[in-house]
């Protein structure tokens, strides 16, 4: 029932190293401030208590999006809006573009960063679901070393990540897409600007009409975003025939563990995993010109 933020200490490191040291020294008492949309709302609602914020907004060199032979590189301060307006993203990583484009608030996209969106570790993140399907890697800096980690291993639970004390995410690497790569993103919401009840991202590599490789990522249906591995299995090596697609969709629904909350019911979510997974694969088939 409060309208203002709690007073806190404010740090504005000039380098990643400095930020990392602050995070190490203060541990759980501080949080990283990037876009701030989620963080400040939660502090205002007293859902989290902080003693300090480490604002990384003025660290140089973290706001970029570029594509090279290693893939698409996104900095920790790159906003969703920058990505949405990037030609590389729109033309070469359509799955990511579609997910960002489905977020209907220009304000949130101007302020919010892709990395921040991943780090808040909500299982409903459209960006995270699409990046999981794209097999994104997290670039992580710690006090003394850097490491990278697949997004797939990044989440430990609701709002919990694998970051160690002193670590922060400095960027994302999305690997290059193989030839014959297709993707589809779908989500269901209550009203257009709401966060997803269920979201699904599918990325598949098709060669000669056959499904060589496929990744299916699901959101809002488990404590973290998840991959539907059994469903992927059901598609891999097939020609995406109707039976295979239906089988995959059924399996996906079995793999999830949704809950009932204010946005939807567990039962509905499970059912929708089936519908959206099937529709996403069907969309890929249409785009790839696969018959049947």
């Amino acid at each position: 029932m409060v309208r203002v933020l709690t007073p806190f200490e404010y740090f504005e490191p000039k380098t990643v190293e400095e930020a990392s040291n602050l995070l190490r020294d203060y541990g759980e008492k501080v949080r990283v401030l990037a876009g701030g949309v989620d963080l400040l709302a939660r502090i205002r609602r007293r859902e989290i208590q902080v003693e300090g914020l480490v604002c990384i907004q003025r660290i140089p060199g973290l706001d970029y999006v570029r594509q090279d032979s290693e893939g698409l590189k996104i900095g920790a301060l790159t906003t969703l809006r920058t990505l949405e307006r990037s030609q590389e993203v729109r033309e070469n990583y359509r799955l990511l573009f579609d997910a960002i484009h489905s977020i209907h608030s220009i304000q949130v996209k101007n302020m919010g960063t892709a990395v921040g969106n991943l780090c808040i570790a909500t299982p409903a993140s459209d960006v995270a679901v699409s990046l999981l399907a794209l097999d994104a890697q997290m670039k992580i800096a710690g006090p003394s070393s850097e490491r990278s980690m697949p997004l797939e291993n990044f989440y430990l639970g609701v709002k919990r990540t694998a970051l160690q004390p002193g670590e922060l995410v400095t960027g994302i690497l999305v690997p290059p897409l193989p030839k014959g790569s297709f993707g589809a993103f779908m989500k269901l919401v209550r009203t257009a600007t709401d966060i997803a009840k269920v979201n699904v991202a599918v990325r598949a590599t098709l060669r000669n009409g056959g499904c060589e490789e496929v990744r299916i990522a699901l959101g809002s249906v488990a404590p973290t975003i998840v991959r539907a591995r059994k469903a992927e299995e059901a598609l891999r090596g097939t020609r995406l025939e109707r039976e295979a697609v239906v089988e995959a969709a059924e399996r996906a629904a079995e793999e999830v563990n949704p809950i009932t909350d204010i946005r939807s019911t567990a039962e509905y979510r499970r059912e929708m995993v089936k519908v959206l997974t099937r529709r996403a694969v069907e969309k890929i088939k249409v785009e790839a010109g696969v018959k049947g």
Binding site: H104, R190, T191, A192, T193, D194, I195, I262
Partner: peptide, 15 residues
Amino acid sequence: ESDNFNTYRIATNYE
């Protein structure tokens, strides 16, 4: 539980 515009949904222009 529906104590704000994020949990209580009113129509946006898309609806």
